[in-house]
Computed example of a mutant assay.
Amino acid sequence: MKKLFVHHPLFRLLSPLFSGTLVYLLILLINNNIVQLQETFLGQELYTCIGLAYIIQEFSRFSLLFFEHLKEPKSFILKIVIQLIVSLIMTMILVSSTMYLYFKYILLYEVNIRELYVFNVIFIFITLVYVMLYISHHFLYKINTTKISKEVDAKNAIEEDFLQFRKGINPKLLYESMETMLVLMKDNPDEAEQFLDYFSSVYRYILTKQHRELVPISEELDILNSLVQLFNQLPYRNVIFTSKLYSKHWVLPTTLLTLLERIIRTTIVSEKHSLKILLEEIDDYLKITYSPEEKLNRHLSMGSLKDIVLTYTYYTDQKITITTKGNLKIVDLPKLHYHENSNH
């Protein structure tokens, strides 16, 4: 869309043939020499008009490229006015010079003012068409770019809303919890009631906090412990979660819950071994460390955390990273500090 069709090689080759022929017919019509069409249509004058059309159209195309890459003036309107004036003057010079040389050295007589005027008017019109094509293409491209940008923004907003909806509902965890609850209600009603408390705490937090920008990390940790207890009742590896935090700061709602769930879901299920997860703070980062025994077809990566990474870019310039050190996997999560006049 950005490249104007007049720069296409096929258009450059064929267009002057048609425009040159049209110029020749117009001149015959103006001079009342239409009878010559039956006698010498493919004559010297036709080839001259086609050749001059090639010269004018290539010059017009070059002027479009030149003014498009010209940085000054900044104003688009002023640049168009200058382009129009320069193009018209140069077209008149090219047409007048070419016709003067043709009449003097080919036809062997002086060109008259009337013939120069006719040729100049016709080829100036061709130059004007080129300039108008450029202007219309510029505004059409601008309008289409704006529309596409709005559509992309709307699409991203819909996708973000859908991701937030899925994140809030978390259908997989919901069904797993309901199925486990059905089993516990038959075998151990007291344990089922406790399981229901963990389940309701997690979902109440997800549904009520997801529209807040930031929450104190202490609130997130409280629910994180409930989520750990919830997963320990599900058919996954038993989780031992330890927190070593000594300062107060903020976190995006459900971030730690999402991280913990994805770590658990990418770990091979085992009844004999536990999954130990350590949360600590070092400098400006929260570090989530665990010993990975990941599934063959699924592992924790930056791609699996792209929703969290995208959200964090709005609040901090520091990056979320995943590194491997020995037999440990470490997720570095930037700390967020709440200020009234800033999001950082």
Rank of each mutant, 00 (worst) to 15 (best):
H7G: 06
H8W: 11
F11D: 00
I27Q: 05
I27R: 07
N31Y: 14
I34P: 02
Q38F: 13
Q57V: 06
E58V: 01
S63T: 05
F76D: 09
L78V: 11
K79I: 04
I82P: 01
I85C: 04
V86T: 07
I93E: 02
L94T: 08
S96H: 06
Y109S: 11
V111H: 00
N112G: 11
E115T: 15
N144E: 12
N144D: 13
S149I: 06
A154R: 09
L173W: 03
E176D: 12
M185I: 14
K186D: 07
D197Q: 10
S200M: 06
R204K: 06
I206K: 07
Q210R: 14
N225T: 11
V228D: 00
Q229N: 14
N232H: 02
Q233G: 14
Q233I: 10
T242H: 13
Y246P: 01
L260K: 03
R262Q: 14
R262E: 15
I268A: 10
S274R: 10
T289M: 08
S291Y: 11
H299K: 14
S301L: 05
V309M: 01
T311P: 01
T313I: 02
T313S: 10
Y314A: 14
T321F: 06
K325L: 15
Y338R: 12
H339T: 12
N343R: 15
N343E: 15
H344V: 08
